[in-house]
Structure formats: structure tokens, C-alpha cells
């Protein structure tokens, strides 16, 4: 497979009134052509900051302290502002969370969709508008020709998100970053948008980085999943690895708190107790330890390295150390392990 993006050991800090917040503390991943990588985590875990770093769309008080972001081997962090402008909206584009506020309220939507084309390609305004119309049809805006001149407030939330998607794909980007594109939408509309993204991916062959706090959304769209906690990836692997052979207690917690069809047995949802750590003073050891039922002494002293579970499946938990005691995962997780065996995997 073709690696098109490689993020290596990314560290991002934010200067705040109270001190430096270490929002991203060493994140590494790569992205292959045509695949979908999902990054899952609670709000504040740093998933949004991670992808914004790729396009360098961070707040002014942010500082990318360390690391590199290689796009076809070219470090984006070394690029000039102008160099980045040529990447944004052209090679790598982004869909934002809230469609109600993502569109310029005083510009007709046709113009907004055509804008990336006019910026990056030497096309006439007429051609750009024609292409915008075509893309609007592609994303499912009915009667696009007539609606090109309409303003954002004349569309519903779901339609607006389709328009935002149209803006993102109008210039056939190689990478599409979707930052919680469905969070602000109704459940039924959510499913439509996910289907649209899948469909578009097949049509134009773009890679997608999909950010969400909702594991349920992930299963339908992702090839690989990374679970993020307190500015770090705690576990990553294929969708099957994460869903049916999870190793990190945090992933267990996330899966355990997910409603499934057979949740009815006890009729309750579990939650992960406690709150994420304050990244102003990140803990010395494992950041999840205070909330972790299975925390060990070593967790408070040293951050766990990534242990290999299988090919392309890694988890940062001391539980995978050969010296660690055997723990008893939650019942719902054990069920998942069984399913994994049925799928032909080997459970540790």
C-alpha cells in the first residue's frame, strides 16, 4: 500500500494563562492511499488538535513543539505559509463539526463551493461554477442549478453539511479530514452523511481521517481505528482488532459504554468513571491510571510503551507486559473476544 501521510512523534503545546498545556504528547501514525483511519476519543483528548496540526489550522497560542508530518515525504511543518495554502483545500481538505456555522452566511453557496477551484486551479469562473454545480449534485443537493445562488440559512443542517462536504471534495483532495462531521446532526441525518462519505470515497478515491467520539459511527466507515486518550494514542489497529480484540482498559471502557443490541440484558450502559487528566501537569505515569480499574504500580511510575498485539495492532498498556497479572475484562469485552475467535483471530 501507498503511504501518503506519515505523522511522527507529534507534540503540540498551548500557552494559556495558567501555563503550558501539553495537548498532544507524542502521536505517530500513517495513512495509506484510499483508506479510512478513524481517531476516537473523548472531547479534549486531542483528536481534533492532531488533525488540525496537519493543516496547521491551530489557534494562535498553539505551538507544534516536536515531530514531523510527512506528506509524500515532504514535511508539512517545514512549509511556508504560502506552501501550506497550496496544500489546503487542494491536496488535503477538511470538513468541520458544525454545519450551521461553517458556511459564510453572506455568500451564495455556489460561490463558496467553487472557491477552492478558483484558488488552486487556473479555471474560468464559469467552469468553476459548472463544476460546483456538478459536485453539489454529487453530494445530493436537489436541484443544484437553482440553489447555487441561495445562502446557507436557506438550507437545513444536513444539507449544509453536504455543502461543506462539497467544498471539501470539489478539488479532488488526496486526503479528506472529517472532524466529527456528524456530531451536530440528527441520528438519521448522521447515517446519510456517513453513507455519502463512503460513496464519495469510492468515487474519487480519497483517503479519509475520520474523527469522532462515537465508536458506533466508526464501525461503518473505518478501515483502521486509533483510540486516543490525553494527547496520546492508547491503542490502534484494524476495525476488527479494536472492536473484537481490544487490549487497552480504556478501549474496554469505551466499548463497554457503547449501546449494543444485547445491552438489554442488564438494561444499563456503563460509563468510565472520573475525568481526563489535566494536561497542564500531565501525570508521570500512564495518564489513564487514575480512572483505570486495572491500574498497577508501574502505571503510576512509567508510561507504558506500545506492545505489539498482532501485525498492525498495538496497545499502550502495561497489562500486555509478560510480567503483568492476568486480569478479568468486563463481560461485554469477553463476548467480543469470542466473536473475534469466530472471525478466526487468536486472542491473547
Amino acid at each position: 500500500m501507498d503511504k501518503i501521510l506519515e505523522v511522527k512523534d507529534l507534540h503540540v503545546n498551548f500557552a494559556t494563562y495558567n501555563g503550558t498545556v501539553q495537548a498532544i504528547r507524542g502521536v505517530s501514525f500513517d495513512l495509506n492511499a484510499g483508506e479510512t483511519l478513524a481517531i476516537v476519543g473523548e472531547s479534549g483528548s486531542g483528536k481534533s488538535i492532531t488533525v488540525r496540526s496537519i493543516l496547521q489550522l491551530l489557534a494562535k497560542n498553539a505551538d507544534i513543539a516536536k515531530g514531523s508530518i510527512l506528506y509524500h515525504g515532504d514535511d508539512l511543518l517545514q512549509k511556508s505559509e504560502k506552501g501550506m495554502d497550496n496544500i489546503r483545500g487542494n491536496k488535503i481538505s477538511m470538513i468541520f463539526q458544525d454545519p450551521m456555522t461553517s458556511l459564510d452566511p453572506t455568500m451564495p453557496i455556489g460561490k463558496q463551493v467553487a472557491e477552492p477551484l478558483l484558488i488552486h486551479n487556473n479555471v474560468s469562473k464559469k467552469d468553476a461554477m459548472a463544476r460546483a454545480e456538478e459536485v453539489l449534485r454529487l453530494v445530493g443537493i436537489p436541484n443544484p442549478k437553482a440553489r447555487m445562488k441561495d445562502y446557507p440559512h436557506q438550507f437545513s443542517g444536513g444539507q449544509r453539511q453536504r455543502i461543506v462536504i462539497a467544498i471539501a471534495i470539489v478539488d479532488y483532495p488526496e486526503i479528506l479530514i472529517a472532524d466529527e462531521p456528524t456530531t451536530a446532526l440528527d441520528v438519521t441525518v448522521q447515517a446519510e452523511i456517513i453513507d455519502l462519505l463512503k460513496e464519495l470515497q469510492q468515487k474519487i478515491g480519497t483517503s479519509i481521517i475520520f474523527i469522532t467520539h462515537d465508536l458506533g459511527v466508526v464501525a461503518g466507515i473505518a478501515d483502521r481505528v486509533a483510540v486516543m486518550y490525553a494527547g496520546k494514542f492508547v491503542e490502534y489497529g484494524s476495525v476488527n482488532d479494536i472492536f473484537y480484540n481490544p487490549q487497552h482498559p480504556y478501549t474496554w471502557g469505551l466499548l463497554d459504554s457503547m449501546p449494543t443490541l444485547d445491552t438489554s440484558e442488564a438494561n444499563r450502559l456503563n460509563s468510565i468513571p472520573g475525568t481526563p487528566p489535566n494536561l497542564l501537569n500531565p501525570p508521570k505515569g500512564d495518564a489513564f491510571a487514575p480512572r483505570n480499574k486495572y491500574a498497577m504500580e508501574i502505571d503510576e511510575e512509567e508510561q507504558p510503551p506500545y506492545f505489539k498485539v498482532s501485525k498492525n495492532h498495538y496497545a499502550a498498556t502495561w497489562l500486555l507486559h509478560p510480567n503483568a497479572p492476568k486480569v478479568d475484562p468486563p463481560a461485554s469485552i469477553k463476548k467480543r473476544f469470542e466473536k473475534f475467535k469466530q472471525l478466526g483471530g487468536s486472542v491473547k
Binding site: K293, Y294, M296, E297, E300, H321, A324
Partner: peptide, 11 residues
């Protein structure tokens, strides 16, 4: 890592 470090702390 020595074995005794792997004691569960908040059971």
C-alpha cells in the same frame, strides 16, 4: 520491569 511493580492498585 520487575514483577512486583505489577500489583493492581485500586482493585
Amino acid at each position: 520491569v520487575p514483577k512486583e511493580k505489577f500489583k493492581l492498585i485500586h482493585d
